[in-house]
Design a protein around this nucleic acid. Structure first.
Length: 577
RNA sequence: GCGCCUGUAGCUCAGCUGGAUAGAGCAACUGCCUUCUAAGCAGUGGGUCAGGAGUUCGAAUCUCUUCAGGCGCGCCA
């Protein structure tokens, strides 16, 4: 029906505007959509106000003219002008109610579209260093990345979810050293450097490796005084590696494997599954000329974007407006983390994605420009890359902020969170606010049984409908489903619900275009509110059988929309509460 | 100093590609369970949309500016 209006609007515009370009511009800017609520008809358009600003005429006058045209095509129940120049269209009842049948026929696919079928999208998210368990900060990135993957997929994109494993840098050496030191602690007087990882998980990895590795050679480690913690840990790594290179590498690989496995398990428990785990180490080392990392650096050098200065190799990042040039290869010959990332993004682009979405912690925002520069310098367009920043989440329990301290190894992990409130509630609250804004996450609220807990409020609506469906079948085992009494206007109590569910496809598109899952959450809250209100005002089981047939068709559609919305967020709808 | 984000009801937040009287929950007060799940519903009160200027027929929304808060600015990852 919106299409029918749009078609007539276009005819109308071409009769008053003689410039094709201006017509297109008006069509693009104006909005013809489901109205906010029924007091404004079913469908509303602001096209007259947009056109008026170009034509410099009175928008109300345009609206009066368009109204007459819309009435002439005889497809609608009522056409009205309103306010400064809106046109509100009321549909015929059977057109209005037809959405119920559409939803119940489309089922899971209602709300999805093919709007962006050409888009091959890659989303890289979480990508936490594999040096410890995921904490609640990572959880937010995980919930967000996974949700936008689902939402984009439902709007026709082909999405690949990828985790970038930083397994090549110094952090992994520190991890390895930490594990070894824990294993030999009795032989070295419980010596433990300040900068090593201290968490319990280090002991656990040690225990798991116990039989498989031989740590005797490491026991002769000499511990002397160091000037600072940084130097200390670097020297310990150097010494340990020298004592037994083979064991070192074995422990390194096994520790990494353990950690990645535990990260993967935590994410699975969080209903997040990656399509690909990309290892930084798979891009090789700079001294191997055929490696990804060497070829990208060499290409940058050859094209004059990278140069040598003070024995280091620098990338010229002027093209993106970065404040200074960045080091790719240090004066000691080792590549930087940035060099890996340059090669990684080249790798991603070479894999042929139309769009790359990086979900990063907000503390990385200063990093965006240099990556954009590298993409441009490697001959691609930085417009392919979209970086979404995710702010940290503060957790509150008993009204107090939960302290995060990574160094000591004592922190509230994602696993703790899932055990505490469940994966679904955790995902829901992570997604309840725009990702790039600070989130105060109240654990007590997430478990509370009041309306303030929107998660349960929405689930409750779903569960209530499930329960009603069962009760109705108990009463009339052979009840037929149809919407006759809604179509003929004998039953109008569902109208608000019908109007609300018809908005869902627009909501999904809006969420996809803006990459904002919280749009869906607020919509589901509104829909649930209308449902609970309906439920209190109308005792379904006391209705006539004919009314009930219609009501249940409508409520099944409502249930379907809630379910589809929750699924886009990676949340399982509750059948019972 | 530079960059990014934020400032909307007492509190927590929606609304921000400009549009119809600025919304919701909580908290306060008042009603609704002999009937489908009260984790519910209905109602009342509560706002200089941080301040100022500009663009516009129209600004919480766009621009500039001031103030306040958060984060980031390594040859770390």
């Amino acid at each position: 029906m919106i299409d029918a209006i749009n078609k007539e609007v276009e005819n109308f515009l071409s009769s008053i505007i003689n410039n094709k370009k201006n017509i297109n511009s008006v069509m693009e800017k104006c909005s013809t959509a489901i109205s906010d609520d029924l007091s404004k008809g079913h469908i509303t358009t602001n096209v007259c106000m947009i056109a008026a600003s170009i034509l410099k005429v009175n928008p109300k006058k345009l609206a009066d003219d368009l109204k007459i045209r819309l009435e002439e095509i005889n497809k609608f129940d009522k056409v009205e002008t309103a306010g400064p120049g809106f046109i509100n269209v009321s549909l015929k009842r059977e057109d209005f109610a037809s959405i119920i049948n559409l939803i119940n026929k489309s089922k899971n696919s209602f709300g999805s579209s093919k709007a962006r079928k050409e888009n091959k999208v890659q989303i890289e998210f979480v990508s936490a260093n594999p040096t410890g368990p995921l904490h609640v900060g990572h959880g937010r990135g995980a919930a967000y990345g996974d949700a936008i993957a689902r939402i984009l997929e439902s709007t026709g994109a082909s999405v690949e979810k990828e985790y970038y494993v930083n397994d090549a840098g110094r952090q992994i050496d520190i991890l390895t050293a930490s594990v070894i030191l824990k294993l030999i602690k009795n032989d070295i007087n419980n010596y433990f450097p300040e900068n090593a990882y201290k968490g319990e998980y280090i002991d656990e990895i040690g225990k798991k490796l116990g039989q498989e590795v031989n740590v005797d050679d490491f026991k002769s480690l000499s511990t002397s005084d160091y000037k600072n913690p940084e130097e200390e840990i670097d020297n310990i790594i150097y010494e340990l590696e020298k004592l037994n290179k083979e064991s070192w590498n074995l422990i390194k690989n096994l520790s990494l494997k353990e950690i990645v496995k535990s990260i993967e398990d935590d994410l699975k428990a969080f209903n997040v599954n990656f399509d690909k785990w990309f290892y930084e180490s798979s891009m090789g080392k700079v001294d191997d000329e055929t490696s990804d990392i060497a070829t990208s650096i060499n290409k940058l050098k050859k094209d004059g974007h990278a140069y040598e200065k003070d024995k280091a190799i620098w990338l010229n990042t002027d093209i993106s407006g970065d404040d200074k040039h960045r080091v790719l290869v240090r004066d000691n010959g080792k590549t930087t983390y940035f060099a890996s990332d340059v090669a990684y993004h080249k790798n991603k682009i070479d894999r042929g994605f139309d769009k790359l979405i990086n979900v990063w912690g907000a503390d990385h925002h200063g990093y965006i420009k240099r990556i954009e520069a590298s993409i441009e310098n490697l001959g691609s367009s930085k417009n392919k890359l979209v970086v979404k920043l995710v702010q940290f989440a503060n957790l509150f329990k008993d009204g107090k902020k939960i302290k995060m301290s990574t160094r000591s190894g004592e922190f509230f992990t994602l696993k703790n969170l899932i055990e505490d409130i469940g994966s679904d509630a955790a995902r829901f609250y992570y997604l309840s606010k725009q990702a790039d804004q600070h989130l105060d996450f109240d654990l007590d609220l997430a478990k509370s049984d009041s309306k303030e807990n929107i998660f349960y409020y929405i689930q409750y609506a779903h569960a209530r409908i499930v329960s009603l469906e069962e009760k109705v079948v108990d009463k009339y085992s052979d009840i037929k489903r149809n919407i006759t009494n809604i179509n003929n206007g004998n039953y109008i109590e569902c109208d608000n619900l019908i109007h609300e569910i018809s908005k869902f496809p627009d909501i999904v598109n809006k969420s996809a275009n803006s990459l904002q899952p919280h749009v869906i959450i607020y919509y589901l809250k509104d829909l649930s509110q209308l449902f609970h209100s309906f439920y209190n005002d109308n005792h379904v089981l006391s209705e006539s059988e004919e009314n009930m047939q219609s009501i249940m068709e409508c409520l099944t559609a409502v249930k379907q929309v809630i379910s589809n919305g929750l699924n886009l967020l990676g949340i399982t709808p509750m059948q019972k509460m």
